[in-house]
Design a protein around this nucleic acid. Structure first.
Lengths: 195, 195
DNA sequence: TTTATTTCTTAAACCAGCTTAAGTTTTGCG
DNA sequence: CGCAAAACTTAAGCTGGTTTAAGAAATAAA
């Protein structure tokens, strides 16, 4: 069974779903490491579901530094949601951090699917409900927690990110400089050897 | 027509809705300024839709400082979403900043309503889709923008907040100290008189 | 395997925003 | 109204985290 269908069944807790009618709204695409899926400033045409691999969404700030705002591992959705919803140009670039397989859906097909399949409304309601709740927790961690504590919490909760993602990119996602992340890691390592 | 029904029609762009079957899932409640709607550590029983007035959601940090994470003005939903979804105890307090009228719905009724009314799935899908997108922008403003710039942007986008909300609470929501907010305001005022 | 490029580390100097502390203004209440 | 409590302001001193700069290690290219 396709990973998307599995994910839908998991979230909607076991509704009977026919695979074919859902998947017909999507197109499978493969990307190599460093490939660009969506370019900043270009029309945002697709919403991506990661089947295998890892993507990141970032923009380039006024100092020319790439600011990574989101990751997407397996079973995550990713796009510039504001641009996708409004049909405007994307404020972000989406890039593959690994060899990645996605399902892509256009805005037109997204609307069609939601109109035709009630299960899609339920599924996306649940996807956004969780994503919104997670996003609020992220705000709390980013803005109300000492950075060393935040990093250690992140490390314990999302160990797979630490493994798979370059430090420079991870530092940017967490909202600090690579130099500072390097220092944090050194301190943590030191503390573990000298208890 | 009730403000909630108006809001549903606005988001779902004009579906015909019968008022009575929807409102029957809710209870109207009124609160005075400073009343507590939800206490930290108590079971999170309700989800609130603000009909009139203003609420805030906060927790008390290890230094005893109240950290305001969210506001809700007219037509906003507010609760500890994680606690409401899972039936666990709330990590936050919800308090009225003004005299406030809400519609309250229990977790059981929320599930019932979603199961019985397809329009509710669509409506909440859209509510969360917007809230999630807004939350991502908020992360970007909080963590990737110089604070003076962030404050001025916030001021221009949400002038009604600046009017209605005590500075101390606003400072906490923005993630800085009241003293620093005071200094920012002074600098902005100075800049406006000396152009 | 050698060379070029990018990533990661280290450490010193610096600064935005916090802490502290004291004064002023506003709000709430008897 | 009059007083207490809370909210806001101001300013000096401090600190967590950035900037800058240079070198070491890993990846990629050739």
């Amino acid at each position: 069974m396709h990973p998307l269908i599995q994910h839908i069944q998991k979230l909607t807790s076991g509704f009977e779903i026919a695979e074919e009618p859902i998947l017909s709204f999507f197109e499978t695409k493969d990307f190599k490491k460093k490939d660009i899926l969506q370019e900043e400033g270009k029309r945002c045409s697709s919403y991506f579901f990661v089947v295998k691999g890892c993507l990141r969404l970032f923009f380039t700030d006024i100092n020319g530094v790439e600011q990574t705002m989101q990751f997407a591992l397996e079973n995550w959705w990713i796009t510039d949601l504001n641009a996708f919803r409004s049909g405007r140009k994307s404020a972000y670039t989406i890039q593959a951090l690994e060899e990645t397989e996605v399902l892509a859906i256009t805005a037109a097909n997204y609307e069609l699917m939601l109109a035709e399949l009630p299960i899609a409304e339920k599924y996306f309601r649940l996807v956004y409900e969780r994503a919104y709740a997670a996003s609020l927790l992220r705000i709390q961690m980013i803005s109300r927690m000492p950075k060393p504590e935040f990093y250690e919490l992140f490390q314990s909760r999302y160990p797979e990110f630490i493994q798979r993602i370059p430090q420079k990119v991870l530092a940017s996602f967490l909202g600090f400089t690579p130099e500072y992340l390097s220092e944090l890691r050194k301190n943590i390592a030191k503390r573990k050897s000298n208890p």
